[in-house]
Computed example of a mutant assay.
Amino acid sequence: MRGQPRILINTPDVELWPGGLLRARSNADARVLSRAGRVLRRKRDGRYLAAALPEGMLSLSPRWAHEPGIEAALDALDSLRTDRGFDIDASGELPLEQLIERLDSLGLDESYGEKVGLGLVPEPVALAFAGFDRYRRPLWLTAHAARAWEGMRRIAGSEGVVLEAISGYRSHHYQLGIFERKLARGQTVEQILTVNAAPGYSEHHSGNALDIGTPGEAPAEESFENTAAFAWLTANAEAFGFLMSYPRDNPHGIVYEPWHWYYAR
């Protein structure tokens, strides 16, 4: 497993991370992660559940073997061990049933998407490592988007323009977590929806969307449109397959986001 490309394997409840890309939270973690081929990480809160070491599975959390969705994660791990020809370009998408159940718990259904003109976005089964973002976090994209981003970033750099990734793939769990934290602080679902898209409706779930910045510029601010990076993207991004999703007066009612670009090929 050590010689495999750096790929994030996605299941509905658990992610399978390459050990070397996770942050150690203790000295004991550091020793384990340095040897782990894969680490099973709970999507809901990022907790490390177990590590696949050369000698076998090592528990990182009590009762990890009884976690929801652990069987699907272990099946995916077995497939990785036995299938040397894993094709990330044809890895498919996760089902949406679990997401629809959670939307229902928020009092939402697909009529929300109809109202804003957006469809539910499934998560990819696998994502490619696309370097690090501005904050030195691993950046995950679909394989096609990752190749396009690397090519675009390299060409921009050769022309004196620095493009930084602010964020890429985000899971349904990540978006649900935003809602759960705000609900716990006393906000209503209606209040949260004025600022955040409903879980499942963000282009970031697809692994094809990027928030892009440039050094010296605050992330995700309209002022990005005044930078050399934005001017370069406006002139060149489409050639690499990237389009700006939310221009001014877009039909979805989403605020102008000059930093948000989607790989559409």
Rank of each mutant, 00 (worst) to 15 (best):
H144E: 10
T214W: 07
G3R: 09
E190S: 15
E55G: 12
A90G: 10
A28Q: 11
L22F: 02
Y48Q: 10
P219T: 13
L8T: 08
P18E: 01
F179H: 06
E71W: 14
A165C: 11
D13Y: 14
K182I: 01
L243Q: 11
G46V: 03
I254P: 10
M244I: 04
L176C: 00
S202D: 10
E97H: 15
E190N: 07
N226S: 14
Y174L: 04
Q191F: 05
L233G: 05
F86A: 07
G207H: 01
R134L: 08
L99N: 01
A65C: 12
N196H: 14
D211Y: 06
G157R: 09
P219K: 11
H66D: 11
D45E: 07
I100M: 10
D249C: 09
A90C: 11
S223P: 04
E93S: 12
W232G: 12
F129E: 06
A229M: 08
E55I: 05
E221M: 13
V121Q: 06
F240N: 00
S223R: 14
G69V: 02
E238H: 14
L193T: 09
V14H: 04
P215W: 04
A50F: 02
R41T: 04
D249N: 15
R81F: 06
D45C: 04
G213I: 09
S223F: 08
L103K: 08
D87K: 07
N250P: 14
G85K: 05
D109V: 10
E164G: 11
E114C: 13
D109A: 08
H252F: 13
F224E: 02
D83E: 12
M152Q: 06
W140S: 03
G177P: 02
G19Y: 08
P54K: 01
A218S: 15
S167K: 14
L120Y: 05
P62M: 06
D78T: 14
P95K: 13
T188Q: 06
G157N: 06
I100R: 15
R42N: 03
F242E: 01
L40D: 04
A198D: 02
D87N: 12
F129M: 08
S91H: 00
D109P: 08
K182E: 07
A51Q: 00
R181E: 10
V195S: 10
G85T: 07
G46W: 03
N250I: 15
R134Q: 09
L243M: 07
L49V: 07
A184W: 06
D104E: 11
L58K: 02
L94F: 12
R6W: 12
L99D: 00
G85W: 05
R134M: 07
E203Q: 10
E238S: 11
W64C: 03
F240H: 02
S202V: 06
Y48P: 05
D75H: 14
I155V: 15
E217S: 14
A145Q: 03
A130Y: 03
R81D: 03
F242S: 05
V116G: 10
I155N: 09
L243P: 11
P258L: 11
T142E: 01
V116M: 06
D104P: 02
L193R: 09
L108T: 05
L16V: 00
P18L: 01
G119T: 12
S202C: 11
R25C: 08
A198L: 04
A165R: 03
V116P: 06
L210N: 00
F86P: 05
Q191W: 05
P5F: 04
T227I: 08
R25S: 09
G113C: 12
V39I: 01
G19P: 04
F240S: 00
